[in-house]
Design a protein around this nucleic acid. Structure first.
Lengths: 219, 219
DNA sequence: ACCTGAACACCGTTCAAGT
DNA sequence: ACCTGAACACCGTTCAAGT
């Protein structure tokens, strides 16, 4: 598959091939044997460079975290920063296949992951709330962005699975309960992973964090 | 394993055994062969009752969704309702093993899942915002609760994996960056899946949704 | 109708052996 | 140091055959 015939196998080449394989097959079809084939070696050879499949995934997740932190920029007050960061984070996730899956499956022990958390903590640092609440706040944002991408991936998978099998879902529209039915007919579901939905969610979170700080101040 | 020697295999018995197996092994070790062994039958037999492992998972997820909707009660204004529902949802998820995993992996096509969405939509129905924003709002809440349980599960897995290997994490505390270091020393991480963290997250979301409605009204 | 034996086409991982 | 052959201990799923 790979053009390079005799280039030595490096960690970097394995990582590149992994991204390619993830893009082609998705994470559930990602296989050590397929990965090896892509590099024109045998599966067993991979274990000289990485001690397990899980470790490869960890490495990929760390790479994403690193990219996110490195290319992030902080300007403006905490609200602007958090808003910008949310969007930036999402943009980065979209560049890598299965990125959200990788980050969720991963134990957040890598240095890059820690940097990511810390970067977010610094944004909410000036807020007049307890450390616990700061942490809760950024956990919300992090989980929101990740699960947003996760949902989009799931939905895309459903879409390709349902290809042409629309007749199985169409008849059920009739007995959808209200208000779901109305929303479905208004096409609310067609923009399930859309940008506007993301912006709304992020807005909710930032509004909420702001409000949390304000009520805290009073007490 | 099961006491019943000659009871016929029913869908219900398979489902019960599945819950048991999930509780014992977790979702990643859930195996058709193990499930069969628990019922004193062969793996192949399961395929007469369910067409695939995925379908069993779907069924379990639907069962959770159903329980959540059925035992939910709506009192008070939308804020109270949403707050109560968030807690109720989480309580139900905690009763079932791997519940969040099941619900995330699942395609939200089952009637029970639809009822769940619809139940939440009804709560935010009186809000003066567009349908799209209503949908975004409840998606946020849903994802929050699910990813909260997901994180807790992950963290628990890490804990048992790290059992007695503390010395590998302890030395790194020294070079944790600020403000993460301070928070770690203050024990913020010890209550990672705690109730107070959940309440804070939920509060943020509800505050945020409220704020969203207020700014919408102005325009 | 319901269950099983036996197989198929895979997995991740290990390890002695090769170069 | 780096790679492979061959195996181990599994998977989910199918299907002819049994009762």
């Amino acid at each position: 598959m790979n053009a390079s015939v005799n280039m030595p196998i490096t960690r970097e080449r394995i990582v590149n091939a992994s991204w390619e394989l993830l893009r082609e097959c998705g994470i559930e079809q990602f296989t050590m044997r397929k990965l090896a084939k892509q590099l024109d070696i045998k599966a067993a050879s991979l274990y000289w460079h990485f001690q397990s499949k899980q470790q490869i995934f960890q490495f990929l997740a760390n790479e994403i975290a690193q990219k996110v932190v490195l290319s992030a920029q902080n300007e403006g007050d905490w609200k602007e920063q958090l808003y910008r960061f949310g969007n930036h984070f999402r943009n980065q996730l979209e560049k890598y296949p299965c990125s959200a899956h990788l980050m969720i499956q991963t134990v957040p022990s890598g240095a890059q992951y820690i940097d990511l958390i810390n970067h977010m903590l610094k944004i909410v640092e000036p807020l007049p709330i307890s450390d616990r609440r700061k942490f809760s706040s950024i956990a919300c944002v992090l989980n929101f962005v990740l699960s947003f991408e996760l949902d989009k991936y799931q939905q895309h998978k459903n879409d390709v699975a349902m290809k042409g099998v629309r007749q199985e879902i169409e008849p059920t529209v009739g007995n959808l309960p209200e208000p779901l039915r109305r929303m479905y007919l208004n096409g609310v579901f067609s923009d399930l992973g859309s940008d506007s939905m993301f912006q709304t969610g992020l807005k909710i979170l930032i509004f909420g964090i702001e409000q949390l700080s304000m009520t805290e101040k009073e007490t």
